[in-house]
Write a protein that binds this DNA or RNA. Structure first.
Lengths: 143, 143
DNA sequence: GCATCCTTCATGACATATCATGCATCTATT
DNA sequence: AATAGATGCATGATATGTCATGAAGGATGC
């Protein structure tokens, strides 16, 4: 039975959480995807990252980050300015509109997490996180 | 910090597991994706399901299942025959080639799971699964 | 028998995931 | 300074996720 396989439960839980979280953002009338929000948030925190570095933080590859940045820029939530000292890179900056969206999404995200974790104690979530980290390490080839 | 957020760890663990599992299938020279394998496996077990029912079992929506079935059919791993009593549906059947691929992937999947779960006790995985199920339920609107 | 509604499936549109590749630029070496 | 290798970014190809819609067949009520 598939339902007895741990990785099926993992996939199921994260997919349902994503649907739930996205639905709540949509319902609030905010036009942004979870993934775009995540990238925008990282850029706000640290604005001198390369696409690869951003990808490492949000666990996406560079190609995905590039496309998300292009969409965020097209939507005016992000601006890219040329960097004088390195012609390959650009300086990313969250616009006021981007900031407004981040502010609007924040309470929704907090609420999403709280609802999703109802009935789980602090010890539960700590253990869960530790086990997930172990699985991650087990699946990561030694570099 | 993103790394302290449970759902980030969840996303990270499942993505890394999928990359790890797909890489091992690729390395064995088997041309199938994890998702295609999953759908093919469900059809082998129960061959009279609608696309929606298959989607429920593998946690995908009907549109994704339709595309995966089309690809599996194009690759000759699946055949679809018209059903006499219901003109909307087709009878799906795994071909010999499809069966051969399922057989070849099976030991790899078992090995993937074993490696990914190294260091986790049976009690750990049972608890993990229970907590994941709770999260799923928390994110599922009452129907 | 017929209209209406439901189900099954296909597909278009858009976003993301992954891999590969191409191009420009930077850095290190000589 | 010239070149080789590394880095940053864009993009094409293919697969999947999600939503919406359309076409066709089936079921029900009248």
């Amino acid at each position: 039975m598939l339902s007895n396989i741990l990785f099926y439960s993992l996939d199921k839980a994260i997919k349902q959480y994503r649907r739930f979280a996205q639905a709540n953002i949509d319902r609030a009338g905010i036009a942004i995807t979870i993934d775009q929000w995540l990238v925008l948030r990282v850029i706000l925190e640290t604005d001198d990252l390369t696409q690869t570095e951003i990808g490492d933080r949000v666990f996406k590859d560079q190609a995905s980050v590039a496309r998300i940045i292009r969409l965020l820029t097209q939507r005016g939530l992000l601006v890219a300015e040329a960097l004088p000292h390195d012609g390959r890179r650009t300086q990313l900056r969250v616009t006021e509109e981007g900031q407004r969206i981040l502010d609007a999404v924040h309470p929704i995200v907090l609420s999403n997490r709280a609802v999703a974790l109802q009935g789980l104690s602090a010890a539960d979530t700590a253990l869960l996180q530790q086990l997930l980290e172990q699985i991650y390490l087990n699946c990561t080839p030694p570099s």
